[in-house]
């Protein structure tokens, strides 16, 4: 808390230096992990146990900060591998696109854009044509994987999606896909979107069982 207050004070008092201090150290762009192929779970004989194991593997993506940061439980998105509140302070607004006068596209554009002439701590500003926050009913921040799993199956909290639509969303949605292409200086989520989509498909095919909450 003291550190937060200190940083807030620095920002208020120092326009230029304060801004630099707020930037988290860049995480080096590298694939921090891979995903086990969906087929490899065939070795688990019990269907329910296999389904849970498949979802737990997919959870490496779902619970990665790259995904959770834009599924916040409050009105404010998170940032970075440390999942700190987004700086500058921005809020959900209409359709998750930010408040009037401070919408996401004040800074974010349709693609990741390089930051030039600056310290190495910030290499790019992330962007995507669909850049916005997930609706509050789809919040993942602070939830267990089991809770997120139940949420994904609940039409009231998954955007009224059928499970087939959920698979399609996970496997092909462009903003979901940003997680694997997060721009220079950001760690991508593990594996590939194709592998992730296959895990979700196999999870649904095995009854979409959830880990205990």
């Amino acid at each position: 808390m003291k550190i937060t207050l200190l940083i807030t004070g620095i920002v208020a008092n120092c326009l230029i230096v304060g801004a630099g201090i707020l930037l988290a150290p860049a995480s080096v762009a590298q694939n921090a992990g891979s995903l086990r192929p969906a087929e490899s779970f065939q070795s688990i004989p019990d269907t329910r146990a296999r389904s849970v194991a498949l979802f737990e593997e997919a959870g490496k993506v779902i619970q990665h900060p790259r995904c959770v940061n834009c599924h916040p439980a409050t009105e404010r998105p998170l940032q970075g591998m440390s999942m700190h509140p987004h700086q500058p302070p921005v809020f959900r607004g209409d359709a998750g696109m930010g408040l009037v006068g401070m919408q996401c596209n004040t800074c974010h554009s349709e693609q990741n854009t390089p930051v030039v002439g600056q310290a190495d701590t910030l290499k790019s500003i992330p962007g995507n044509p669909a850049w916005h926050l997930a609706p509050i009913e789809m919040a993942w921040e602070g939830k267990t994987l089991g809770q997120i799993c139940e949420q994904l199956k609940d039409p009231k909290r998954n955007g009224e999606k059928t499970m087939a639509e959920m698979v399609e969303h996970m496997a092909h949605d462009e903003l979901v896909g940003w997680g694997w292409q997060p721009g220079e200086g950001r760690e991508p989520v593990p594996g590939t979107q194709d592998e992730f989509g296959k895990l979700i498909q196999a999870w649904v095919d095995t009854g979409a069982a959830c880990p205990s909450p």
Partner: peptide, 26 residues
């Protein structure tokens, strides 16, 4: 030019009528 990294707003212009930070706009 304040920060160059979309943190301060000193570089704000209007791009097609909407506010935009020019420091991070290629």
């Amino acid at each position: 030019y304040g920060c160059g990294v979309a943190q301060c707003g000193a570089c704000t212009v209007h791009l097609d009528g909407m506010p935009r930070r020019s420091c991070i706009t290629p």
